[in-house]
């Protein structure tokens, strides 16, 4: 009974936070709402007998990824989103597409519903860090290695992307950009003149 109440509490919290994330104009508010979603989902994972994943969820998503995101938002000092000035009807189109997607996913899940109604008793093995670790390093060793290599690639890629350009290179980029804008302005002038 308490489990049911908890589930609906956390589910409601997650949905509310998700809606607020999309709705908020300020990126930092969005980020904080998203952290709320992650925490709520992690609580749901605990009720689903997956304490290890729940803790890792907090550790990786809330503790690492979102801290990075908030760090970047603070570093770049982002403004609020400006409302769309043109193509405003696209909002309605987006909403319609979302509704269709929702119906589709629900339909798929409805088709899957021949699944077992009651949870299988997993209190002994599944979800314990021991069983996850054993499965990870025996049956699924190759995927784990691939993920490791992918993370290494991400590290290298991140470092290369964010490194500062040499002054010469930077000047080139800025110059070409300025030239382009200049040309566009000239074009506009031309149009106005005639």
């Amino acid at each position: 009974m308490i489990g049911t109440a908890l589930f609906f509490l956390f589910a409601g919290f997650a949905i509310a936070c998700a809606v607020s994330m999309v709705y908020q104009k300020n990126p930092l508010y969005s980020a904080v709402s998203l952290v709320g979603v992650f925490v709520a989902l992690s609580c749901i994972y605990v009720t689903l007998a997956a304490p290890f994943i729940a803790v890792v969820q907090i550790l990786i998503y809330a503790g690492a990824i979102m801290v990075l995101v908030i760090f970047v938002i603070m570093l770049l000092n982002l403004d609020e989103d400006k409302p769309l000035t043109r193509l405003r009807y696209l909002y309605a189109v987006g909403g319609g597409l979302g509704l269709i997607l929702l119906v589709q996913t629900m339909f798929i899940f409805y088709a899957v519903l021949r699944a077992p109604k009651d949870p299988v008793d997993t209190s002994q093995t599944a979800g314990k860090s021991l069983s996850i670790g054993q499965a990870m390093y025996t049956e699924y060793l190759l995927p784990v290695e691939i993920v490791g290599i992918m993370l290494l690639m991400a590290i290298i890629g991140g470092v290369i992307l964010v490194r500062r350009l040499e002054p010469g290179q930077l000047k080139l980029v800025v110059d070409s950009e300025l030239d382009k804008r200049h040309e566009e302005e000239e074009k506009d002038d031309y149009r106005i003149a005639f």
């Binding site: 904080v32 809330a62 801290v67 908030i70 760090f71």
Partner: peptide
């Protein structure tokens, strides 16, 4: 908790938000 060490690490890592925010 089966994963006590991870739990402590996770919660303390969330503590950064307090300071950053």
């Amino acid at each position: 908790i089966d994963v006590g060490v991870l739990f402590v690490l996770a919660i303390t890592s969330v503590g950064v938000y307090g300071i950053a925010l």
